[in-house]
Amino acid sequence: MSQNIKVEKTVTIDKPAAELYSFWRRLENLPRFTRHLQDVTVSSDSRSHWVTRGPLGGTVEWDAEIIDDRPNELIAWKSVPGADVDNAGSVQFKPAPGNRGTEVKVVTTYNPPGGAIGDMLAKLFGESPKQQIGDDLARFKMLMEAGEIATNDGQPSGHSHSKD
């Protein structure tokens, strides 16, 4: 039951690697485009505290440290021992051919625990963690290229009047 789940997903963003790296390296920015991160607090150059939203208003939290940092190329992080969930991730920035921008590849791994937190995580990441990472990356791309994240939350519809 307890084995690492690994997810990787790549998207091409029409911006220079340096710009994307800088935005991501300020880890406080991550909740602006990831759906489940509520807050990231940076305590030192390598240490940070991550809080994700759980169901019923609960949270899952851990401390993470940067384990590899190559400016404009790669950032890798890992939860420190004692985390609710052991997890690690990296983001890699590689120039795409022919002025097509930058290929951004995210790899995350986590070790799902059993019990209540395991159940919460299952709900958190849904049936398709790959889909969720892909969704987060799509929102990162929107924010970087278009300056905002497309939405239709809060627009009018006749739903509430529906008799169906």
Binding site: T151, Q155, P156, H161
Partner: peptide
């Protein structure tokens, strides 16, 4: 298709 009364739209994003 039905004519209904719905809320007016509002600005949701800066653009």
């Amino acid at each position: 298709v039905r004519v209904e009364t719905v809320p007016d739209p509002t600005i949701l994003n800066p653009r």
